[in-house]
């Protein structure tokens, strides 16, 4: 047992050294320098607590599916996860109920509407997808548990498996969300009216606000992405965060609906599953290879981090990450992470 844990320490040390030595470190620094000067976008203000974010805050992290990590800038600054939580809660709902039951409550169609639109599918009364607020509230409603506390603990435990540490909810953000979440209340009641969610509306809304107020940093987002890139197993802890069979469901939704009403263009131009949040975070997944986490609070008019989109776009173009051309466009990312050491 001691031998085994020593082995783990040694592996972690070796990984740290390999990433510290990789040329990719310089690439991330270059991207950080290049985009730190971009002054476009505005910090979200619809919740008072979000308006306090520092617009200059900017961090980029990449974690590979085999556990090498790269950080630059404000990679350890905590912020509220907001909508980045949605695909992960969708994954938990899939585990709790199976694919068909979840799909009976929420669709998988992109909307082209804003993330907070009050709109349901007219034929089925389902929210269009789990990435818009309506669909996210419906998936949060599906989190199993004996009572609110139990559901809350299961939610945090799920996030904890992805990031590899205990996750906490920021009380100020939660209170702020709860005090101003009238639109989300309206959406929830509309869905209750159609019988799409259960009648514990207040509890589910509280849980949804708590979910959005969980604190992460961009290193956490990169590990979450890397966990999905690694078939659902956290590459740093070795712990499984989601059943392997649901990983592709989560990633498909992220690719088609993850970046709000920019999702179609994102899929076209950048082409990797991703999810943004109004806290300034973006998680992106390069299946089989790595997870990317970016933090920068100023948002474009669609609610996506301006610098986050630019960083993902440049990484995708530079390394040919678009999943429909992966492996045959541009220099391979792995060549820069492990130069000339890949045998053959």
């Amino acid at each position: 047992m001691a031998e085994e844990s020593n082995r783990g320490d040694l592996d972690a040390l070796m990984s740290k050294m390999k990433s510290a030595a990789a040329p990719f470190r310089a690439t991330l620094q270059e991207l950080h320098r290049k985009y730190a000067t971009v002054a476009d976008g505005r910090v979200a203000t619809y919740i008072p607590e979000l308006a306090t974010a520092d617009p200059a805050g900017f961090g980029i992290s990449v974690v590979t599916a085999d556990g090498l990590r790269f950080d630059v800038g404000d990679a350890e600054r905590l912020f509220s996860i907001q909508s980045v939580s949605k695909p992960f809660v969708f994954g938990l709902a899939l585990e709790d109920h199976g694919r068909e039951r979840v799909l009976a409550k929420v669709g998988v169609e992109p909307t082209g509407e804003a993330f907070n639109a009050i709109v349901l599918d007219e034929a089925t009364n389902r929210p269009f997808n789990p990435m818009v607020n309506a669909g996210a509230i419906a998936t949060t409603d599906l989190i199993r548990g004996e009572d609110h506390a139990d559901r809350f603990k299961r939610l945090l435990a799920m996030l904890g498996r992805y990031v590899g540490r205990e996750v906490f909810v920021d009380s100020a953000t939660f209170l702020s969300e709860r005090a101003t979440g009238h639109r989300n209340r309206a959406i929830a009641h509309l869905m209750l009216n159609f019988g799409m969610i259960e009648d514990r509306v207040d509890e589910t809304l509280e849980l949804y606000f708590q979910q959005c107020s969980a604190l992460v940093d961009c290193r956490d987002l990169a590990v979450m992405g890397a966990t999905l890139a690694n078939g659902g197993v956290n590459p740093l802890t070795g712990e499984r965060a989601i059943e392997a069979r649901y990983v592709k469901d989560v990633l498909s939704i992220m690719l088609s609906c993850g970046i709000y009403d920019f999702a179609g263009e994102w899929a076209f131009r950048i082409g990797i599953p991703a999810k943004s949040g109004v806290g300034g975070g973006i998680v992106a997944v390069i299946p089989g290879v790595a997870g990317i986490g970016v933090y920068s609070p100023p948002l474009d008019e669609r609610g996506n981090s301006v610098r986050g989109v630019l960083v993902c776009k440049e990484l995708s173009e530079r390394f040919g990450l678009h999943i429909l051309e992966a492996g045959h466009a541009g220099p391979a990312l792995l060549d820069e992470i492990r130069p000339g050491r890949r045998g053959g």
């Binding site: 050294m17 990433s19 510290a20 990789a22 470190r25 310089a26 620094q29």
Partner: peptide
């Protein structure tokens, strides 16, 4: 940050 040495060497 030990990675600074990498930057320094290069």
């Amino acid at each position: 940050d030990v990675g600074l040495l990498t930057d320094g060497f290069r």
